[in-house]
Amino acid sequence: MHLTSARRNKLSASTISKHAVLVALSFLAIFPLYWMIVTSLKSEGEIFNASLLPHHWTFDHYKMAWDSIPMARMLGNSIGVSLLQTICQVVTSILAAYAFTRWDFRGSSLIYGLIGLTWLVPFQVIMIPNYVVISNFGWRDTLTGLIVPNIVSAFAVMQLYNAFKSFPKALIEAARLDGASDWSILWRTVFPNLKASIASIGILLFITSWNDYFWPLLVTTKMEHSTIQKGLQMFMSSEMNLWGPLMAATTIASLPVLILYLLLQRQIIDSFVKGGLR
């Protein structure tokens, strides 16, 4: 009796310390976001005091941020670029993953290796030649210039390859015996069954492309033609000390990803953890 109660005490102490550590880590993770949102809602006079909640809630900063930069235009650009880019990346990687898992063909491991090796090529190593090409095509300050170099994601190919590999060969064989063509096997048999993993990779690609900053930084010069990330950075460097509107703009720029995360955090976390960083 005495022993068990001592043990239980010890157990709860260790449980408490576990929770303490995790609460501290959670606080570190979410405080900056909390502070961003709270600052954006405080009135002008309150911003510089450290109160944890606004006394007077106001959307003035949002209005100001919205009016001082072409926010709607940049959000539209970001949505367009991210959606189109994600769709292209998903479709191209579905086709590639299907090819790798459906057939044995000469050079397949070489091609796969070349796709895999691209993660060793940092953006900064290839940016100048790509920038030159985009300029020569007259694609600077265009959505085409933002999207076309990114229609393939090596990461997505490799992730989908793993998903496709686990798809039962017997089902493909059965569809083939029914006289289905390879194309319709892909879209009628394989695709519907792998929708969930394709969707979670798609979400990850969307977030990555929404957050991308380097390429828009290079390819676009004007806010009107740029994505929200580049616009936010330009707003930051032009309005050094307008913290309220800056936090409002930052919140707006983060909102789509935050909403996605709120709805689908389980899938998002799983696909990130499974896929590593790229």
Binding site: L22, L25, A29, P32, I207, L232
Partner: peptide, 25 residues
Amino acid sequence: NMYRALIFLPMIMAPVAVSSVWRWI
């Protein structure tokens, strides 16, 4: 699951947004 959702959050934030918030903090 709750802790996972909270501590993972910084990972999905855009680097520019992160910079903006930390510069303020």
